[in-house]
Amino acid sequence: MDLLEYQGKQLFGRHGLAVSDGKAVTTVDDAVAAANEIGYPVVVKAQVLIGGRGKAGGVKLAANEEEAREHATNILGLDIKGHIVRTLWIEYASDIDTEYYASILLDRSAKKPLVMFSVEGGVDIEQVAEETPEKLIKQNVDPLVGLTKEQALDIATKGGAAEDVIDGVADALVALYEVWIEEDASLTEINPLIITPDRKVKALDAKVTLDGNALFRHPENADLGDSANADPIELKAKEQGVTYVKLDGDIGIMGNGAGLVMSTLDVVAQYGGKPANFLDAGGGSDAETVQKAIELILANENVKAVLLNIFGGITRCDEVAKGLVGAFEALKPTVPFVVRLDGTNDVAGRKILEEAALPNVQAATTMDGAAEQVVAAAKGNA
């Protein structure tokens, strides 16, 4: 779950990282009131889960009330790469001497947390890694020990932090790691981590991704994120307990098990198709779950064909078939379906579909064959 900037900063603040005073608002009048309360100059910042806010006109400096009102009016409702600005973050404008970069993420190859630090902050870290890799320090952390102050000091020193702020940078890294561990985050990033003229270290921005599967340990974080801009199909799927991610293709995909669904996406792509979604109905899916999953897939108007790829273990293929029949009765879909049933009760499942004689439903026996059929069906329905 990705957090908005101000939510990440509030999380940082709970763990001792210095952040600017600010207030989240949703109306122009509240933005002006917040700016007057905080004191000028302030920065009016669009809160959306996308980069490039500044270039799109979503970050503006206001020196007085008139400018605060003007910028709030212009930014609220702004479309930034498909994300509509509904929330603003009003914060006191910081004096900046230097901009650094810091992040904690999971190094999957090393199976350890990874700290990254650079004195080249304020720009895309990918650009730094490509053009001046020597200025990007990377160190793994022993998860049984955690990021110690000593290791953080070593990172800050090797990274080239100014001598008089090395200690402050190290403290910021330790606090950032604390957020990563204690909040079950998969990414905590500060870009830029600024040094003020009076040599204070402060997080001027925040990028945080929390592990949604760990939210049961953090009920206080359950309402974070940008639900106002979330895809309505994904929100409905979440309410139903179905794992669904909308993609930009035109072939609806449903499987049981994340690995099987990922493989299905890859095979469809190999045959020249573009998946419209990732949908894992989960193990043990019954007819009702399958029907709801199909309804989610068809809610995407871009879908031109649907592939059900089921390998029955604890999921019974006859239940999947019943769910498909129920979906056709209730939804009367017009797009072609390709169905591959294999595993537990697959013979019974195929018999149910044969007897139902659903219109525009093709059977497949292999994953490759199913992928080839659904790609052809989608092209034929274009």
Rank of each mutant, 00 (worst) to 15 (best):
A327L: 14
A156W: 01
V169P: 13
A377Y: 10
M262D: 00
T73W: 08
T366K: 06
S94F: 00
A230S: 15
D286V: 06
A269T: 15
A299K: 15
L176Y: 10
K23D: 07
E301R: 11
E66W: 00
E355G: 06
S227G: 04
K236W: 01
K322I: 03
T209R: 06
A152D: 08
L4R: 12
Q270F: 13
G146P: 05
E66P: 00
A56Y: 02
T26L: 02
A237R: 07
S94D: 09
I38G: 03
L147I: 01
I166S: 09
Y271A: 05
S118L: 12
G146F: 09
I155Q: 08
L247K: 05
P143G: 05
L260N: 04
D184L: 07
Q270S: 14
L324A: 08
A24G: 00
G52A: 01
G77V: 02
K45E: 00
N256P: 01
G252P: 00
D318P: 11
K138M: 15
E234W: 06
S118E: 13
A287E: 11
N229I: 05
K292V: 10
Y244H: 13
G22Y: 02
E5K: 07
L187S: 10
D2E: 12
Y101C: 02
E163S: 14
K292W: 02
G380Q: 12
L204C: 11
A56W: 04
G369H: 13
L296V: 11
H15W: 10
L106F: 14
E99G: 02
A371G: 12
L114P: 01
A287V: 04
N64W: 09
V128E: 05
V338R: 07
N74Q: 15
D286Y: 06
L204M: 13
T98M: 10
Q47A: 04
L265R: 03
Y271T: 12
V261H: 01
L173P: 09
G369T: 12
K45P: 00
D248V: 08
V32D: 07
I233L: 14
A281S: 13
I75M: 06
L11I: 13
A376T: 12
M116D: 05
D286P: 09
G283T: 10
V338M: 11
V201P: 11
